[in-house]
Measured scan of single mutants.
Amino acid sequence: NNDALSPAIRRLLAEHNLDASAIKGTGVGGRLTREDVEKHLAKA
């Protein structure tokens, strides 16, 4: 659900052409954090 993404996370996802649903969020309520996105990028 993109409504739960902060603007910074949306921008980071867009810059790397990532789909938020492909990344498991570890923030409050399962929200994506910058660390989640960076860890996903490091794996790729």
Rank of each mutant, 00 (worst) to 15 (best):
D36I: 02
N1S: 13
G27W: 00
D19F: 02
I9V: 12
A8F: 03
N2G: 13
P7F: 01
A20Q: 08
K24M: 11
K24V: 14
P7T: 08
L13R: 00
A20I: 14
N1T: 14
I9W: 06
A14C: 07
N1G: 14
N17F: 09
G25R: 07
H16G: 04
A8H: 13
A14N: 12
S21P: 04
K39L: 12
S6M: 06
N17Y: 08
D19E: 12
I9R: 02
D19H: 08
A14E: 15
L12R: 10
V37A: 04
A20S: 09
A4G: 14
G25S: 06
A8T: 12
G25Y: 00
A20L: 09
L13A: 02
R31F: 07
S21V: 07
L18M: 09
K39S: 12
R34S: 12
D19S: 12
I9N: 05
V28H: 10
L32F: 03
S6E: 13
I9Q: 04
L32S: 01
A8G: 11
A22M: 15
E35Y: 07
P7N: 10
L41D: 03
L13S: 00
E38L: 15
E38S: 08
D19K: 09
H16R: 01
L41V: 13
T33Y: 00
A4M: 14
R10H: 05
S21C: 06
T26I: 04
L12G: 06
G29Q: 09
A4R: 12
T33S: 06
P7H: 08
K24T: 10
K43N: 13
A4E: 15
K24P: 09
P7C: 07
V28I: 13
E15H: 06
T26L: 04
S6T: 11
P7L: 05
A4S: 14
S6V: 05
D36E: 02
N1D: 14
K43E: 12
S21A: 12
A8Q: 12
N1Y: 01
D19G: 04
L18A: 04
H16L: 08
I9G: 02
D19W: 02
I9K: 03
R10A: 13
A42N: 13
A22I: 12
E15N: 06
T26K: 03
R34E: 15
V37K: 00
L13G: 01
L5Y: 03
L41H: 06
N17W: 06
R10I: 15
E38V: 13
P7D: 15
R31I: 15
T33P: 00
E15S: 07
I23A: 01
L41Q: 02
N1A: 11
S21L: 08
E38H: 10
D36Y: 01
E38K: 10
K43Y: 06
R34H: 12
S6Y: 05
E35F: 08
L32E: 01
L12H: 14
D19V: 11
L12A: 11
A22K: 13
P7K: 12
R11I: 10
E35I: 09
A8S: 12
E35K: 10
P7V: 10
K43R: 11
E35P: 06
G25W: 00
L32C: 05
K24R: 13
H16M: 07
N2T: 13
K43H: 11
E15V: 06
L18K: 01
A14H: 09
K39G: 10
R31S: 14
V37S: 01
D19I: 09
A14I: 08
T26M: 04
H16V: 03
G30W: 00
L41C: 04
I9Y: 06
G27E: 03
K43S: 12
A44G: 11
L32P: 06
A20F: 08
G30K: 04
E15A: 07
A22N: 12
G27Y: 00
L32Q: 03
V37P: 00
A44F: 13
N2W: 01
A20M: 10
I9M: 12
K24F: 06
A8M: 06
K24E: 12
A22S: 14
L5A: 06
G30Q: 04
A20Y: 07
L18V: 10
V37G: 01
R11N: 15
V28G: 08
V28P: 14
K43G: 12
A42F: 04
R34K: 15
D3W: 00
N2C: 07
E35W: 07
L12K: 11
L41W: 04
T26A: 04
V37L: 09
L12D: 11
G27F: 01
E35N: 10
L12P: 02
S6I: 05
R34C: 07
